[in-house]
Design a protein around this nucleic acid. Sequence first.
DNA 1: CAGGATCCTATCCGATACTG
DNA 2: CAGTATCGGATAGGATCCTG
Lengths: 123, 123
Amino acid sequence: MREGLQLDPPGNAKRYEVFHTDCPARDVVDHVTSRWGIWVLIALLRHDLRFFELRDSIRGISEKMLAQTLRGLVADGLVSRTVEPTTPPQVTYALTDFGRHVGEPLSDLFARITQGLPPRPES
Amino acid sequence: MREGLQLDPPGNAKRYEVFHTDCPARDVVDHVTSRWGIWVLIALLRHDLRFFELRDSIRGISEKMLAQTLRGLVADGLVSRTVEPTTPPQVTYALTDFGRHVGEPLSDLFARITQGLPPRPES
DNA sequence: CAGGATCCTATCCGATACTG
DNA sequence: CAGTATCGGATAGGATCCTG
């Protein structure tokens, strides 16, 4: 299904030249803006969290989706995973520099939507 | 499935207090970060576009999803729809102030991911 | 050109059960 | 505690056809 995305007819489509989503950035964007990715990032933006803390913070997320989302974010280099070999095991998730860098506009987005929603603060 | 999200046990969950996604902002965030919403917004951030221009810009999107995405964004007050009663009909989509306001961090997000990805354009 | 309606498939995602 | 594996229902989304 990716096939149709990056074809680039020489003559006519150049005008638009938007972001034919050919690059790997597309996948990262997909992960970041996935159903749960954004919430995980925003949560981690505030402070590092363990698995169950994330699960409790983002109430409604299933462990499956949390694990899956985290795996994607770790693979993308946005989140770091630290295992403390204690008993019981303790795994802490934190944002990498890149993750923090990406998380900022996300937090901003959330703030703008939240504040922009009320009937209209404008004069 | 929304039921489990906003329940608020008085005693124990207050610590996390993140964003229990109870508010309408959740829906807007969902639309904005939907598979195609982000690309539509970024495309419109550059200049107003007609339906087929959007379809061509975001190659890979189906007309169905484009229409559906646009409907959601219009309903959310992010995008305006202007119909010129010519023949053939001509419909132009543009961002509202709110849409532009929300689109900015999105564009920023995309830029940061794109720039952050390459091995390191350093030097 | 700008979509709506329909059908049908891929995938998302939650629930459950099990492992280190 | 921190996950993985599997199953099945729900939904997203693409292809196609049709309308104003």
